[in-house]
Write a protein that binds this DNA or RNA. Sequence first.
DNA 1: CCGATATTTGACCTCTGGTTCAAGAAAAAG
DNA 2: CTTTTTCTTGAACCAGAGGTCAAATATCGG
Lengths: 191, 191
Amino acid sequence: MGRPKQFDEEAAVAQAMEVFWTKGYAGSSPAELAEAAGIGKGSLYHAFGSKRELFGRALSLYDRAGAELTEEFLSGPGTAKERIRAYLRLLVDADFDAPVRRGCLAVNTALELGGRDAEATAAVRRSVERSTDLLAARIERGKLAGDVPASVDAAEQARFLMVTVAGLRVAARTFDRETVHAAIDTAVAPL
Amino acid sequence: MGRPKQFDEEAAVAQAMEVFWTKGYAGSSPAELAEAAGIGKGSLYHAFGSKRELFGRALSLYDRAGAELTEEFLSGPGTAKERIRAYLRLLVDADFDAPVRRGCLAVNTALELGGRDAEATAAVRRSVERSTDLLAARIERGKLAGDVPASVDAAEQARFLMVTVAGLRVAARTFDRETVHAAIDTAVAPL
DNA sequence: CCGATATTTGACCTCTGGTTCAAGAAAAAG
DNA sequence: CTTTTTCTTGAACCAGAGGTCAAATATCGG
């Protein structure tokens, strides 16, 4: 009963995510978020409680979508090195091809709120750990298939790659595509 | 003639740098900056013109101090690998040991203003290029000394390391020391 | 000592941010 | 219908941001 919602909550979160992604947490005003979602400021607060809670929803959505993409991409055909290299290129190319360089929401959040917002920091950490596990699993499969040297420590290499990913996404906001692509090749060289 | 300055401009910039470093550009208010510098808001605007200009001065100071530290540290005794590993540990340990995790001003700036503030982006890029050159030179010396394999491309490896540094400083805001140290070891493995 | 010049300061101003709220609008229950 | 409940909205609120200004203060050349 009661008046039914006139907007899709998930769609609103998705729009908010875009705004947060592009302008950062502090840089996104309720007015912008509401307008992007196509609703009034009041509705936004009624539905989500606060800017911070809405951001939490946006981060969670980003995490789910990212994990799905990662999983799908890594499971494609080819050696571990080929797949991971392609995955890294996908990430940075998405950035270079986008109308505005916005990097990675998780990395941006780690830098903007890391240490100051425990919940956000924990969310980012969980998200990264998930990706790390996916990478490690892919490397492990590569070892079994024989295309990755047995001497490689899959877990360690995966953790290292995630650090590199963070670096790449910072670099993608400052440098040109060639430089970043070269860094990717160097990063996956040990595989 | 005229009333003499009652504060050291460079010292004020240094204090402002600390605030920007800790709270970000948008997160630092003129009131905080003035208080940190121990002067009134009016004096601050009189001396620096605008928040943005003050930030420029702070970035420049950070760059100079960083370059000096890098140079000094890399020229220490030992192999290239040892020195670079120690340097990377120095950076992340400084972060872990600090009362508040603030990462690297240049990296933070790249993410907060990258793409939106051309001047800031250029300043960061210059700063990174300088460090890259120092690293490349150190690797080159290692090759001459015979402690770095001749197969290593010094310039390429240096660029890659700078990407890694960015990643490390993001990681230092989200993960624990052991994880980051392990990533450093993996990063310098090729040397 | 007197202007001339330069600096300092806190009050003040405008604008926006994040949030709340009172009033209206749309459904379902009775 | 009316009541009840839930949603919607723009106005209104308060705090703080970023910046300006007039007045007060300090030094120097004459």
